[in-house]
Design a binder for these strands. Structure first.
Lengths: 249, 249
DNA sequence: GTCTATAACCGGATAGAC
DNA sequence: GTCTATCCGGTTATAGAC
């Protein structure tokens, strides 16, 4: 049973075929959405057989994985100038989030689906899931950068957790954006505008000695809880379980 | 084209058949999960034909709708004693959330799927979606009750928004719970324990005059944003669109 | 209006030959 | 690595019975 060469040895030709399939899929997803795009259409557009498409991507969902990577790369690129220019925490945060919305806009319809898959813990696409740990780490790292490059003073205990908190906040923004039907997603941009200011004020408040007890309580809770919330059952060493996702979809 | 009698005229016999199908589905979902449960199996377990099952439930997803209703009814029931007994805000909130976890526990595996569907704005199951507005309203109403029955003093502007905020908080708890693989979902219970205390402290702080400007800014943002975040395109009056969910799934 | 039975369509996924 | 053939299950359609 030759499994798909997900991260495994890749020949140059295989690599090219794989890329062609992914590109075809992303193009169709963007043009028609996810459901309307059949694996058969993807295969045809890529000029390969249906079976061959499945050789490279174990399921239709796995094709979405390529989207995450692409999306984050685009985001990094768009955020670069902001991070280079701004030193104010709020300005950095705001710029990075708006960059996220900008780069995601062409995929708005499609992103809804992503969020659906992302909420399913069994899905390999779930950002909490081990397989996507990489994507999540990178997103958190970006928030760490937002913070590190700012002149804001943040208590050490909070600073350790803040990037993760900001990432969760970013997820919330994206969730709103996904549901946002306003023209040009204007309301999402307003939301970023408003809430980044609030976040900045809260972070500033966190240094207030009067609020130290509360801050410490919050950080302690985070510490206790942050031990990988998705520490799900390890996959049995040396092989896939008998059926993949045997129970839930 | 006779459509399914969703809210429409129901004869007693039809009502009974409908209930039998739903019960069969919920049982199978709970026992085997969603994917593993075929519509054919549901029909067989309910003692009806496949066609008949589709006569009552337009799609497999629609069966999930029954779950929301059942789940909330169970929650209300379990929360009743707590709400009758406790007057302390934090105790009420904690009791209600733990009741939610308790009543949801048998459906833990299955609930993951629900969350997947819930994140999809096109899905009729999405709690933000109009079709489920009812379910959401009820959940928010429960939180309003948590607040109203408590002796806590909350500034009026915040009090108006707090039930919704608490509901979002509840959603976050559920999201964590869905991903919680600890035995007996112990970590989720700890999370409720810890965070309800933090929430109570925050609510108490909200009355502090020193923090009034921040509170007002937050409430104003909420007011501006709360104008139905999912005000998606109205469905064309007088009929279903040509294809349902033509683009996204 | 409620229901059965059956056949068919469609698309995701798999098996096994080349 | 790639293909063709096939399976499986959600969904639809039809035709008719109570």
């Amino acid at each position: 049973m030759p499994l798909t060469p997900d991260e495994a040895a890749r020949t140059p030709r295989g690599e090219e075929t794989r890329a062609r399939i992914l590109a075809a899929a992303l193009g169709l997803f963007r043009a028609q959405g996810y459901d309307a795009t059949t694996m058969r259409a993807v295969a045809e557009a890529a000029g390969v057989s249906l079976g061959n498409a499945y050789y490279y991507f174990a399921s239709k969902e796995h094709l979405l994985h390529g989207f995450y990577a692409q999306s984050h790369a685009d985001h990094l690129e768009a955020a670069r100038p902001v991070l280079a220019r701004e030193r104010d925490f709020r300005a950095r945060l705001r710029g990075v989030l708006l960059a996220k919305l900008d780069t995601s806009e062409p995929y708005h319809r499609f992103a809804q689906l992503l969020f659906g898959a992302a909420a399913d813990p069994e899905s390999p696409l779930n950002p909490f899931h081990a397989m996507s740990a990489d994507v999540r780490r990178q997103a958190v790292a970006l928030m760490a950068d937002v913070l590190a490059g700012a002149k804001a003073k943040v208590p050490a205990d909070l600073a350790a957790r803040l990037p993760e908190l900001l990432w969760i906040y970013e997820m919330g923004i994206i969730l709103f954006w996904v549901h946002d039907a306003s023209p040009g997603r204007a309301r999402s941009r307003v939301l970023v505008d408003r809430t980044t200011e609030l976040v900045a004020r809260l972070v500033k408040l966190a240094s207030n000695p009067l609020l130290a007890p509360l801050r410490k309580a919050i950080v302690r809770t985070l510490d206790d809880v942050a031990r990988d919330p998705s520490a799900a059952a390890e996959p049995p060493p040396g092989g896939e379980p008998a059926g993949r996702r045997p129970v839930q979809g």
